[in-house]
C-alpha cells in the first residue's frame, strides 16, 4: 500500500549500565518506520534486529500500564503512544525519565516513588468496621460525586508528571504531582473518611505547598488527568479547612463537585 511507505529514521538512544559504566553514552541506530510505527515498536525492532543488549520496560503497548514512559526528544512521553513520524524530526532522541534512578538504559526505578505514595494512604479509609466485615449493601454515589474525582482516578502511574515537575528536579523528598493527585483522588471520593490521616504527609514542608503551578505535569500527562488541577483543589480544601475552619466531615463544602449538564453528560460520540 502507498500509505505504508517506509522512511529511515535515526535513533539516538541513551545507553548506561550503572554497574559497569562510568558515564552514559549515546548510541545511534537507523530504523525503517512507516506511519503506524510507534517509538516502542522501533525500539523493539532495534532490540530484535540490531542490538539485543538494549534494555526497555513495557507491558501493554496501548497506554494503559504506564511502564514505557521515557524522554522522547527531551519531553516525557509514553513510547507506545507516540508515533515516530508524528514527531516530525529526523533524529529521535530517546532517554530514560529524568529525576528517577536509572536501573539500566531506558529503565528507571520507581520504588522510591511508591514508597512516598504509601505516606498518603492511597486507599479508601472507612470507620464503619462492622459494615466492612459484613456488608449489607453498596455505597451509593450520585453522578456529580463521581464526576468530582473520576478524572483523577484515570491516573496510570506512569510517573511522567513527577519527572516533568521542576520542583522534583531539585527536591527528591517532594511528594510530586502523581502522589498528590493520588491523595486528592481519595480525599475527594465521597466514600472516603481519611482526610485527617493524610494531612501529615500532604501538609508537610515537602507536601502540596511546594507546587508552584508550573503546570508541566498536566502538559505531559497522557491520560488527561490534569494533576495540576488536583493539587490546586487539594490546597483549596486545605485552606478551607485550616484557615476558614470548615470541618473535614463536611466534604461537600471542601471538595468541588463535577457538574452534570442535563441528565447525564455523555462524551461526544457516545450517544
Amino acid at each position: 500500500m502507498s500509505t505504508d511507505k517506509e522512511v529511515e529514521v535515526k535513533f539516538r538512544v541513551f545507553r548506561f549500565n550503572p554497574k559497569t559504566d562510568f558515564v552514559p553514552r549515546w548510541q545511534e541506530y537507523k530504523v525503517k518506520v512507516n506511519k503506524s510505527t510507534t517509538v516502542l515498536d522501533a525500539l523493539l525492532k532495534i532490540k530484535e534486529e540490531q542490538d539485543p543488549t538494549l534494555t526497555i520496560r513495557y507491558s501493554c503497548r496501548q497506554a494503559v500500564c504506564g511502564s514505557c514512559g521515557m524522554m522522547i526528544n527531551d519531553r516525557q512521553m509514553l513510547a507506545c503512544f507516540t508515533r515516530v513520524l508524528e514527531l516530525n524530526s529526523d533524529v529521535i532522541k530517546v532517554a530514560p525519565l529524568k529525576n528517577y534512578r536509572i536501573i539500566k538504559d531506558l529503565v528507571t526505578d520507581f520504588s522510591e516513588l511508591f514508597q512516598k505514595e504509601k505516606q498518603v494512604k492511597p486507599y479508601i479509609i472507612r470507620h464503619d468496621v462492622e459494615e466492612l466485615l459484613n456488608p449489607t449493601g453498596t455505597y451509593k454515589q450520585t453522578e456529580e460525586e463521581l464526576l468530582g474525582y473520576i478524572q483523577f482516578a484515570d491516573c496510570i502511574e506512569c510517573g511522567m508528571c513527577s519527572s516533568a515537575c521542576p520542583v522534583s528536579a531539585t527536591d527528591p523528598l517532594y511528594l510530586g504531582p502523581m502522589i498528590l493527585n493520588r491523595a486528592y483522588r481519595f480525599i475527594s471520593d465521597p466514600r472516603d473518611l481519611g482526610f485527617e490521616q493524610r494531612l501529615e504527609a500532604i501538609d508537610s514542608e515537602h507536601g502540596c505547598w511546594r507546587c508552584h503551578f508550573a503546570a508541566s505535569c498536566s502538559a505531559v500527562c497522557p491520560k488527561g488527568v490534569d494533576p495540576a488541577k488536583a493539587i490546586q483543589l487539594l490546597r483549596r480544601a486545605l485552606v478551607k479547612k485550616g484557615v476558614l475552619g470548615i470541618s473535614s466531615s463536611k466534604k461537600v463544602e471542601l471538595i468541588p463537585m463535577g457538574h452534570v449538564k442535563g441528565k447525564l453528560e455523555l462524551p461526544k460520540g457516545w450517544e
Binding site: 478524572q151 503551578f213 498536566s218 500527562c221 491520560k223 490534569d226 468541588p256 462524551p267 461526544k268
Partner: peptide, 26 residues
Amino acid sequence: RLVLTEHGFLIGRPIRAVYPYRKGTL
C-alpha cells in the same frame, strides 16, 4: 494570577477526561 489559580479558581471543575483532552489548567 497565582493567588487565584492556586486556590482553585479559574482552573475549571473536575470533569470526565475524554480524548482529545482539554485540561482545565492549560
